Simulated assay, not measured.
Amino acid sequence: MKHRPPPSPLAFGALLLMLAACAPTIKIEAPDKPIEINLNIRIEQEVRVRVERDVDSAIRNDPALFGLPPAPVKGKTP
C-alpha cells in the first residue's frame, strides 16, 4: 500500500482562494427616504363588576369573611 504525500501549502492556498472567490457578496445600503412606521392602534378596556344585593350586604356585615379589612364605624376614630 502506497502512502500519498501530504498536500503542499501552495495547493492548500490555491484551494482557499478558489473557495473565497465563490462566496456571495452582500451589499448593505441605507435607504434614500427615512423609514416611516404608521401605527394605528386602538386599545379599549372596559371592566364591569356587578354584585348582587345579598352578596353586597354579606360583604358589609362580615368583610373578614372575604379577606377584607373591617369597615370603619361611623362616629369612631381609630
Rank of each mutant, 00 (worst) to 15 (best):
E44G: 00
C22T: 03
K33Q: 14
I28F: 03
K27D: 00
A21S: 05
I26S: 07
C22L: 11
L19C: 06
A30M: 09
P63R: 03
M18C: 12
S8H: 12
R48Y: 11
R48T: 12
K27G: 00
L68E: 04
P7Q: 03
L10A: 14
L17T: 01
V49Q: 07
I37H: 01
G75T: 02
K76M: 12
L19D: 08
P6T: 01
P72D: 02
A71I: 15
I41P: 06
F66G: 07
I41G: 02
A23V: 04
R53W: 10
H3S: 12
P24K: 00
A11C: 14
I43C: 03
E46M: 06
E29M: 09
P31S: 07
N38T: 13
E36W: 06
G67D: 06
A64F: 04
L16D: 09
V47A: 15
R4L: 09
D62C: 08
L19K: 04
A23P: 07
K27C: 03
C22I: 06
N61I: 12
D56P: 04
R50T: 14
P5T: 12
A23D: 06
R50A: 14
P24V: 01
S57H: 13
F12Y: 15
D32F: 10
F12E: 14
A64W: 02
R48S: 12
F12L: 13
V55A: 13
L16N: 02
P6H: 03
S8L: 03
T25K: 10
G67P: 00
K27W: 04
L16P: 02
L15M: 13
A11Y: 15
N61V: 14
H3Y: 13
R4V: 07
H3P: 06
P9R: 13
I43P: 05
P63S: 05
K74M: 15
D54V: 10
L16M: 08
V49C: 12
R42W: 08
F66A: 10
D62M: 10
P78W: 07
P70H: 15
P72N: 09
L39P: 04
P31W: 00
R42H: 12
D32S: 14
T77Q: 13
A20H: 00
G67V: 04
P24E: 03
I43S: 02
P7I: 00
I43A: 03
I26Y: 03
L17P: 02
M18F: 04
R42P: 01
A23E: 01
K2I: 15
E29D: 09
A58I: 08
P31I: 00
N40M: 10
K74P: 08
I37A: 02
P72A: 09
E36I: 14
P63K: 08
L15Q: 13
L10D: 13
A14I: 12
P24A: 02
V55S: 10
P24G: 06
A21P: 03
P7V: 02
E46T: 08
P5Y: 04
T25F: 01
P5W: 08
